[in-house]
Simulated assay, not measured.
Amino acid sequence: MIKSGKRLGPRKIYSEDFKLRIVKLYESGKHSVYELEKIYDISNQSIYKWIYKYSKYNKKSVKVVEFKDSQMNKINEMQARISELEQALGQKQMNIDYLEKMIELAKQEYNIDIKKNSNTPHSGGSKTTKKN
């Protein structure tokens, strides 16, 4: 017992081979630190220490950052939304191109200028009329 009255659990000591195996599992990309923590009942602090100590890729000066599942889901949802918006934008651009071509054909075939010119007089449809 310690001064606060809490009991400390037994301290776990892991072999060098076990630590290396955990780091290899992490580096292979098959498991995240969170998954290894749950599977092997090891604190994530211990796993990160081992990664910094034994990893070929992650050194002390480099901070290891992992996305939680909810963050990855959010990123995937945002990427899907971006794809939807890009597709909608492409369809709108095709509609604009089609309408511009129709305006051009109307001018060529029927000599009708559908686009409003700045010198065209405004229609009187919106003016109020006097009652007699």
Score class of each variant (00 low, 15 high):
Y110N: 04
N117S: 14
I47E: 02
R21Q: 13
E86S: 12
M78Q: 12
V65D: 05
M1N: 09
D17N: 14
K127C: 06
Q108W: 04
K19S: 00
D113S: 12
S43M: 01
I13G: 01
K92T: 05
E35I: 06
I39P: 01
G125M: 00
N95P: 00
Y48V: 08
N119E: 10
Q45R: 15
I47M: 07
S32K: 12
L89Q: 10
K6E: 10
Y110I: 01
K115S: 11
V62S: 08
Y54I: 00
L89Y: 09
E84K: 15
A106K: 11
Q79I: 13
K68Q: 03
S15H: 05
K24A: 14
N76K: 15
S28E: 09
N76T: 08
V64S: 01
L105C: 04
S46D: 03
S70G: 00
T120L: 09
S126D: 05
Y98T: 12
G29A: 05
E104H: 14
W50V: 00
D113V: 07
K3S: 11
Y110S: 02
Y52M: 04
G90Q: 07
D97F: 03
N132V: 04
K12S: 08
S28N: 15
Q79R: 14
E104W: 06
L99Q: 11
I82A: 11
K101A: 02
N117Y: 06
Y48S: 04
I112C: 05
T128L: 13
S46H: 01
P10Q: 09
E104F: 14
Y110K: 11
Q87K: 14
E16H: 14
W50D: 00
K107S: 12
I112Q: 06
I47R: 03
A80M: 07
H31M: 08
Y52W: 07
Y98Q: 08
S123D: 06
Q79V: 12
I96K: 11
L85P: 03
L105G: 00
L25T: 01
E100L: 13
Q79M: 12
I39C: 02
E109W: 03
M78F: 07
P121E: 05
G125I: 00
K12E: 06
S43I: 00
L99R: 14
S32N: 08
I22T: 00
I82Q: 14
L99A: 09
Y54C: 01
S126Q: 07
S118C: 05
S61T: 10
R21S: 12
H31E: 03
E104C: 10
I82R: 15
G125S: 01
V23S: 03
S55H: 09
T129Q: 02
K38I: 01
E77K: 15
M1E: 06
E27S: 14
A106N: 12
R7G: 03
K127W: 02
P10D: 04
K59E: 02
K107I: 04
I39V: 08
K131E: 07
S15L: 05
K92P: 00
E109K: 15
V62K: 13
L89C: 09
N95A: 08
L89F: 04
S43A: 04
V23C: 05
D97N: 13
A88I: 07
G9Y: 09
Q71A: 08
Q87G: 03
Y57I: 13
G29Q: 07
K59G: 00
T120I: 06
K6L: 10
